[in-house]
Design a protein around this nucleic acid. Structure first.
Lengths: 239, 239
DNA sequence: TTAACAGGTCAACGCTGTTGACATAAGGTT
DNA sequence: AACCTTATGTCAACAGCGTTGACCTGTTAA
């Protein structure tokens, strides 16, 4: 265990580094996000982060226990950014659709961070705010509590899961990524109809569809089913 | 680029290692899966794999370009294993539900491998077989080709995405995993009702629901919406 | 003015994937 | 049966990784 970290609230002395930079949790998280965005997931190493900050790499360990702790801070910052740009209208289905697509899009804007952090429960402020907001939308729409939680869970995990899946593709090293795109054209689209009739029959659609994310389609399927369930519940209630 | 690899078909000479083991692609993949299962994701390193095989670590590079290439081979082997235990009945909805749950369960049985490989397109034999089979189920059910591809894509990517998401949780180092489980009880369940009314009202359900995977619920929502769409299509066809 | 100590720095640890050079046994050819 | 080619196992080395303990120094509270 690492006991070098001082809780942020107790931090008072801020000593500049050799290059004159004054470090802080926020500065480190921002710099890490910039590094990820500009140079890819492999660029986020303790040494490179130190270099980008203008500080000795090991100065990080005064702010975060280890790289995993830094990762959770990055994850929470991403949640916060997404939530900040979202404007709910009161129409639960449209609002959830919008939020889901935003979470997905924002993850793809920082694929390297999304890949590393989307499956983590941070328990930090922004995450808590997001949970509260989404539950509010569902309960406001009329879902009873157990149903609201069930749909909340499916909705959020679907968004996070697809965000991670698609971010992982985007985050692949360039050659590997191009190789994957080619597989559909070069391998699947060329399979003979007698051995693989279904692939051959739909090859045209496959090539076109597989290059896009399936998330919008999957999200709409989920919301459609949820709406049907809500109608069912309200039908029961009035009878 | 690494040109040490000889295509499997051209392999003729098999020279035993110092310890007498005769290497092969299959043996390496199996050993890698065993390592992952028994000792976790961090245990899969070139050196440890060499040790487990009873060979010099670098002998691997005669069979796989690099560790990524090995990973794809592992991924395809997992697909094959899942498909092999699946028995379709002819009822498309039940069959897809069963297949989805199997893919998910098998991934969780090898979480480390699933995390690393579920977002990859391997283009290898088992994957091709899976694509052909699932498309066959959907086309057989009566979905027109573009719709079949759309639903295929959403179904498969959702299964893979949830598999990766849930596998990632399972694959966390033990202390981190326990810390996450605690967050729901220790942080969320204790938020006061005046600042976080929706969380407070549903805390009981949250604690119970969030410890399970949301995949079965999400899968059922997807299949429900797909069935509704099929009914709609067939309605149009007869009018 | 001074004493305490947060926090920046440095050197070192054991680990990683990967490469190039080398050694040798398998197996087709003669 | 001897030979030659070459597939493939081995070895040493490289650069880079996260992390730690020891050290040093500027900031701040008293």
């Amino acid at each position: 265990m690492n006991d070098r970290v001082v809780p942020p609230t107790a931090r008072r002395r801020r000593r500049p580094t050799k290059t004159g930079v004054v470090l802080s949790e926020e500065l480190i998280v921002e710099t890490a996000l910039r590094l990820l965005k500009e140079h890819g997931a492999d660029a986020l190493t303790v040494r490179r982060l130190g270099l980008a900050l203008g500080a000795d790499p090991t100065a990080l360990y005064r702010y975060f226990r280890d790289t995993d702790d830094l990762l959770l801070a990055i994850a929470d910052e991403l949640i916060g950014r997404t939530l900040r740009t979202w404007r709910p209208t009161g129409d639960w289905r449209a609002d959830l659709r919008d939020l889901g697509l935003r979470m997905h899009a924002d993850s793809l804007a920082h694929p390297q961070a999304a890949v590393l952090s989307s499956y983590r429960v941070t328990g930090r402020v922004h995450e808590i705010e997001a949970v509260e907001t989404i539950l509010g939308v569902l309960r406001g729409a009329g879902f009873p509590d157990p149903e609201a939680v069930r749909i909340y869970h499916a909705f959020v995990d679907q968004a996070l899961a697809f965000a991670a899946l698609d971010a992982a593709s985007v985050a692949l090293p360039r050659p590997a990524r191009e190789a994957e795109a080619d597989v559909w054209r070069a391998t699947y689209a060329r399979l003979p109809a007698d051995s693989h009739p279904h692939i051959a029959a739909t090859a045209r659609h496959l090539v076109a569809d597989m290059r896009r994310s399936a998330y919008p389609a999957a999200l709409d399927l989920l919301l459609t089913a949820a709406a049907a369930r809500l109608a069912e519940i309200e039908g029961q209630r009035t009878t």
